[in-house]
Design a protein around this nucleic acid. Structure first.
Lengths: 346, 346
DNA sequence: GTGAAAGCGCTAACAT
DNA sequence: ATGTTAGCGCTTTCAC
């Protein structure tokens, strides 16, 4: 095992000298060895090995203008950031895809409003080739910052300011929230349920409004009293359920916009003596691992491939960067499919 | 608002030209403006503003040999990584401290054994100035990798291979696990409990053995049957509790090495009809936010400042890097205090 | 206090 | 197929 010598790190120059070739040839070999004779290639490789040579990243970036790094911007002010399995799974997906392309993940956590400046400087400083951003709210400053910095960016979740006409303009990855919601409500309807309520998420998040739209697609004439708004948390689901039961004691089904709210609703239903699914059928959304299977009864819910979405975000960005270099058009957004998972709650 | 002009980013050269000074002077001002006359300083600053100049990071790194970035290495193969609030809180602490020093956080997630190579290359490539690593197991290859790459590294949690004599050699931040455990057991003892059991964590993690040592400090002659081993998960806590109740039906207190295991133990105790704290007093460890307060009864537990530990890790590393540049000795490890939080379970 | 000039280590034309 | 050379944008002696 050739323990690399101490002292300053060897340069390409040193490798070239040792292999008896020019720096250019050494460089070619180090980068993948196209158009270099077998014999020389081996010499260089041996020198690299013996010297423990590792390319200097800064020098390379300075001339290629590529960093091989991607920023992941997380603007969620809540504690949710990591605790929410949603984020963690997306990050895992991103990390895997980036690693597979030898790209690095730079994590940009926004804790306070003052952090936006820091992020802007960072993106403008050319530290990264592109950015991935999450769950933006209606008035989020991130898109303006990335645009001004000329930083290619892929969004996780449809930005709520993206109208239908902009679909091409801002690349994003999102689940088919609307279609999934339609499937959920249609399923309840096919079960024979006639008073199907909906517990929605906050109106300033696209995923919430899209799911509500899906509900309305199937039940355009639903009683407005059957719709309550939550905040994607367990408690807010419980509160919404309480409200709904008061307004519409005759409801016989609930479609909650996520599993956390569904579990809150379930708790209230049980407390009120309504059996699930007999009296009230319940469907959630997300198929969140710890939640959906752990409730009693386990939740029928809409599944989406969250880690896959993360991978896709990274892939879209990397592909976009490649295309940018070649002058071809950047790839557009992707909507990933959802599927209904039947368990015992409906 | 001076919208930066499109096209190539302005260089320091451009700023200097516009301000009518030399590149050297422009550089001095940009870096903090020591030893430059007021008048010139202002001229340069104005040029920076007008041009929307942002220093090129790669060029700067190439000459200073500093990247302003720190790697956070997470080697946990389990899904725990983010779901575990422990990690997320430490990362938040790290992120805050790094942001305050304008350093960047590069996340290195190890998914498989093959990833060690990638990490080694990355660290050797000079992408980062230092590294932060977590929860290493006895045979973890990370320390060897960072050492070989000559990468200053601070560990989160005492590396289990660190004997007492190495305390100086490897800088780490850890809670006073042993002292906290002593406090927990002494508290139970002061309550008058005489058959105090312990549910420990996996023996290859220092935090687990340290807590066990703390238990033994107070009860050196404890019946070995009163000690069971878990895996820091809820289920393993339940299993260990079941085992303990069979071996020692007369136990009247349990000290669990973390809150998750305590909650599992609590579940089993309730199922078996033992009231907590009357029949069996229960103390946990960590004061994990969602867990400790949510159980019924809420857990008496040992609290540690996890986010603070993250901040401390970052601070230690940054300080070490500064010292390295100045040739002064690197700071040693830090043990953070723990405090007992009384709730209803004991 | 300010400027001129020499690199940092690498890639990419361009010659050969 | 290989070598020569000119930078990439910045910091940092060293003169003035």
């Amino acid at each position: 095992m050739p323990e690399p010598s101490p002292g300053p790190r060897p340069t390409l120059e040193a490798v070239a000298a040792r292999a008896g070739v020019s720096r250019a040839t050494a460089s070619r070999v180090v980068r993948g060895g196209e158009g270099v004779r077998q014999a020389l290639t081996e010499k260089v490789l041996r020198a690299v090995e013996e010297l423990g040579y590792v390319p200097n990243h800064a020098a390379r970036t300075l001339v290629t203008r590529r960093t091989g790094a991607v920023a992941v911007i997380i603007a969620e002010p809540e504690v949710r950031i990591f605790t929410d399995p949603f984020f963690s799974q997306q990050i895992r997906g991103i990390a895997k895809e980036l690693a597979a392309h030898d790209s690095q993940l730079v994590l940009l956590l926004l804790e306070g409003p003052g952090d936006y400046d820091r992020i802007a400087r960072y993106l403008a400083g050319g530290h990264v080739d592109g950015a991935l951003a999450f769950s933006l709210h209606t008035d989020d400053p991130i898109p303006a910052i990335t645009r001004r910095a000329g930083m290619p960016t892929v969004y996780g979740g449809r930005p709520s300011w993206t109208a239908a006409r902009d679909h091409q303009a801002v690349p994003y990855v999102d689940a088919d929230n609307r279609g999934g919601a339609r499937a959920a409500v249609r399923y309840l309807s096919d079960l024979g349920r006639r008073r199907i309520a909906h517990i929605g998420g906050p109106r300033d998040q696209a995923s919430a409004t899209d799911r509500l739209d899906g509900y309305r697609d199937v039940l355009p004439d639903a009683d407005p009293a059957l719709i309550a708004e939550g905040a994607f948390t367990e408690e807010s689901g419980a509160a919404a359920m309480t409200e709904l039961l008061e307004r519409c004691p005759d409801l016989d089904a609930v479609f909650a916009a996520n599993d956390l709210m569904a579990s809150g609703a379930l708790r209230v239903l049980k407390e009120r003596g309504r059996s699930v699914p007999d009296d009230v059928a319940l469907v959630g959304f997300d198929d969140m691992d710890p939640v959906a299977k752990a409730t009693d009864p386990p939740l029928t819910t809409i599944q989406q491939d969250i880690e896959g979405q993360g991978r896709l975000m990274a892939r879209l960005l990397l592909r976009g960067l490649a295309h940018e270099r070649e002058g071809t058009p950047a790839p557009a957004s992707v909507i990933t499919p959802t599927t209904l998972v039947r368990r015992a709650s409906a």
